[in-house]
Amino acid sequence: MTDFLRRLFRTPQGLLGCLIVGLILLAVVAGSWVTPYGPNDMQALARYKAPSAAHWLGTDQYGRDILSRLLDGARSTVVMAVLATFIGTLGGAILGTGSAYLGGRADEFIMRTVDAVMAIPSLLLALLVVSLLGSNSANALLAIAIAFVPSMARISRSVALTVRKQDYVSAAVARGEGAAYIVLREMLPNVIAPIVVEMTIRVSFAVMLFATLSFLGLGAQPPASDWGLMVSEARQFLHRSYWILLWPSAAIALTAIGFNLLGDGLRDALNPRT
């Protein structure tokens, strides 16, 4: 474990990614305790304020403290994105490894169907699912999870097929190990690593998809402090203050960069050849 961490921190991507993601997770866990104001506390006399000592990031069109709203929104935005990615990955991994395990015609059929579904852009698929279920955060979560299943299935299948052909699996078969032992002890640990890497990178897509759905009015609904919704609302008040647009945009970008860097760092750390 310490060896793994040393490998992770050795690359600039891994180190920076860990720092940024750690900071964001801290905001998610402790954010609502340290916020100076409530996320929906309105101060009619302090609207459109630029950053100051009282409001570190300024205030929005209702005089709400932007820092408090960002910290509060971190919980919904980031936790939802991680959950959606996890559910989508799990679904994709089961489908992909199952397909690889079945092999033959069933594998061919499943993978061609997965390819077919991938012809629908994931944003469009998510839009359709949300419009089917209704616009709110929980449905947006499900929509993103569903939109991730096809590509994760494809990746999991190719990883599982490569692992299946490795010598250590053949050796286990030759030793006469049972199927459960081979799948659980030999294959699974080697399948999980690349999938975790892919999943980490996907979290950044999920954050962006989530924000995009909210921006289009199909995700979180006002007065939620979801970051995409904050950007969407800020557009009308740009002539009064650009800070209300800048901060949530920066928060989305920083989160996406953090998970991207962490994913790349993990990939290098888990690759035995580097």
Partner: peptide, 22 residues
């Protein structure tokens, strides 16, 4: 490219409109 893959289109679009057009 790290910055590029981390900016959703609606953010880039809004920033571009504010800076270049407004």
């Amino acid at each position: 490219s790290y910055i590029g893959v981390s900016l959703p289109e609606f953010v880039t679009a809004t920033l571009a409109v504010v800076l270049v057009a407004d």
